[in-house]
Computed example of a mutant assay.
Amino acid sequence: MKPKFPFRNLIPTFFAGLIDDPLLLIRSRPDGRHLLFDCGQVHHLAKRTFTHLDAIFISHAHMDHWMGIDSVIRQLIASARTVHIFGPPGIAERMEHKLSGYDWNLTEDYWCSFQVHEVHRDTIESSVFPGPQGFHRQTGEVISRNNRVIYQTPYLQVQAETCDHQIDSLIFRINESPAYAIDRQKLESLDLVPGPWLGELKKRYLAGKVDSTPLEVLTLQNGCASPLMVEDVAELFAQLMISRPQRSIGYISDINFSQENRKTIFQFMAGVDLLFCECTFLTADKVRAHASNHLCSEDINLLLEELCPAYFLPMHLSRSYSRRSSELYSELNPPPETQILQIPLQITPRPLLAAEISWQVNFNPEK
């Protein structure tokens, strides 16, 4: 049964199996933008997906989270736009090495560019790789981080925190923008008549310009709708709008279960509705999990008990459990309000066996 997520604008799709390299795609419904979290199973993405790809978020540069960037470059190269990449310190240098591994002597003006943002604890450092110039790195600006937000549109924001995996590994939270509904009773009590001005009010809210200029509304006078100019639009907005719960998605991949990481997760992921989190080892291999800076199912149960998300999807199980994957779900013990989402073991095309390959060549020498 497909879960009924509570999101208004976010459409999440996990494009990997339980033991595959992780890849999460989130589509923003109102503007059609696509956001990619880690670059594992990229070959399952349809080509049309890349035409709407706006930003990529890399947790860390281990091979299983980063190697798919080559396929992304290949699909985007002729898109004539700039795609943003966010990752931990050093990700720009790794992107530079990726791009320098190819010859770019036949560049075109319509090629894409990449703007890579290194997310440090206190700053974000940017570099630009312009395709028309052969992707030669250009150092960009350094901005201070005043909060956790690293990317934002009118419909969502992406936040990041740094955890330890013997290297910096970013965890992400995707928040829908606050949503509001019209209080119809309040509308009537103020003798206001619905009309196009309500759409303009919403448009200003999404653009962050609620109190920019006066707004012409419709008011009921002598039984007829008459125009009225409202100067204090922010006050009108506050009177008419009913706030709805702000929904969010969490993404945690490859961290250790240190006290500091746990504290960061509990604070950062509090109230999250849908949580994607690595569960690399079973409880019996807890020592092995912590020695390799990963989580086991016992650790996950502690996280779920604290966070209580509505939905939880475990991912990135070690390939050593390929014949024992069902044990993971039996070991997970979430609180009653949390639903565990199960995914196939693998969704990669299986390799052909030798007996399935025909080596016979249809060749007739008389023709």
Rank of each mutant, 00 (worst) to 15 (best):
S113H: 01
A354H: 13
C112K: 01
H62G: 04
V116L: 02
R350G: 10
F129R: 00
L332N: 13
L36T: 06
A46M: 06
R137C: 05
L228V: 06
R121D: 09
M241H: 11
D38K: 06
H43W: 11
P334Q: 15
L99V: 07
A160P: 00
R324V: 11
N364M: 12
L220Q: 04
S212M: 08
E366K: 15
Q115K: 14
L192D: 05
G87T: 06
H294S: 05
E298N: 14
Q342V: 15
F135C: 02
L307V: 08
L236T: 10
P336E: 12
S59L: 00
D103K: 10
R145S: 05
I174A: 01
I171G: 01
I77A: 01
Q75M: 10
R184A: 15
N362S: 11
K4W: 01
H97R: 14
G101A: 07
A78W: 08
D54W: 00
S322D: 15
L317E: 08
P6L: 08
F14E: 02
V83L: 04
P335F: 11
D31I: 11
V119L: 00
Q360R: 14
G134M: 02
G101N: 03
G17D: 05
S358T: 11
N364F: 12
H62D: 09
P130I: 03
S79L: 11
C163E: 07
Q159L: 14
D38L: 04
F15M: 10
D21Q: 12
L156S: 08
V142G: 09
